[in-house]
């Protein structure tokens, strides 16, 4: 179970999160939508314990992340999967080694099992044949799929996806969402996915949150969201930005 209580975060005095609270029960999948620069990635980083909130707390299975030492946090994270917006593949390793890395380093499997599971994971995302390539030698869509394979290969209980389909062609994007939905059905992981694939994303999640201006403007089921008459929600669904002036221009990002 993922629980966020009153998260506040400011960078150099500029508030990004201004009181975010929600809960994702075990085995449920939640979509996080909202405009760029409104703090979705920052929120995910807090949930994974990579950023500490200025105020508020994050609990995973009832355990407050702030109360964990570095070592306990690492042990907890072995149960996590995280798909970064940019993939974050290790660029000195081949695609195969990237996927094999967590198997070797976290699970210490025999090379035989590593090879079987890594090949399986790569085949599942349609990357069989690209094993020997370096991340710089494959397309953006392939990088995203390799990152997905790396996150799924350990069959984690809890996965965060940061825009796994942004910047992909519609066919690949559709295939990846289908793959994520299928994994969710098989593995029953607890997950949060940041996505702009509205309304396609609503078919695979149980909850939706709309992050707007550092707060969750809406949390509920997809059906509730589609029925909502909140002006920001409606604008988001219509893709109409008249109501949703950007708060500020995005600052520097890593």
């Amino acid at each position: 179970m993922i629980q966020a209580v009153g998260l506040h975060k400011a960078f150099e005095g500029v508030p990004v999160l201004r009181g975010v609270s929600f809960e994702v029960p075990r085995g449920h999948f939640m979509a996080l939508v909202g405009r760029s620069g409104h703090g979705k990635s920052v929120l995910l980083r807090h949930l994974a314990g990579m950023l500490r909130p200025d105020r508020g707390r994050v609990c995973i299975d009832g355990q407050d992340l702030a109360s964990l030492g570095a070592h306990e946090l690492r042990r907890l994270r072995r149960r996590f999967g995280f798909v970064f917006q940019g993939g974050a593949l290790f660029d000195s390793m081949t695609v195969y080694d990237n996927v094999a890395f967590p198997l070797r380093e976290c699970m210490r499997l025999e090379e035989e099992d590593v090879s079987r599971r890594a090949s399986e994971a790569l085949a599942r995302v349609g990357l069989a044949g690209a094993e020997g390539k370096l991340p710089a030698q494959i397309s953006g869509g392939m990088v995203k799929r390799a990152a997905l394979a790396r996150a799924l290969v350990l069959e984690p209980e809890l996965i965060f996806f940061d825009e796994p389909t942004t910047g992909l062609d519609p066919i690949t994007a559709h295939a990846i969402l289908e793959l994520i939905a299928q994994c969710h059905r098989n593995l029953r992981f607890t997950g949060i996915i940041v996505s702009h694939q509205i309304p396609r994303i609503f078919e695979i999640v149980e909850h939706v949150g709309l992050l707007h201006d550092g707060r969750l403007r809406f949390v509920g089921t997809p059906d509730d969201m589609l029925a909502s008459d909140d002006e920001v929600v409606v604008a988001m669904l219509r893709g109409d930005d008249a109501q949703m002036e950007p708060r500020r221009t995005p600052g520097p990002r890593r």
């Binding site: 990579m50 690492r74 994270r77 072995r78 995280f82 890593r254």
Partner: peptide, 10 residues
């Protein structure tokens, strides 16, 4: 974010 990715693998 490759260092973060390692951290997140524990």
């Amino acid at each position: 974010e490759q260092l973060d990715a390692m951290e997140l693998m524990g």
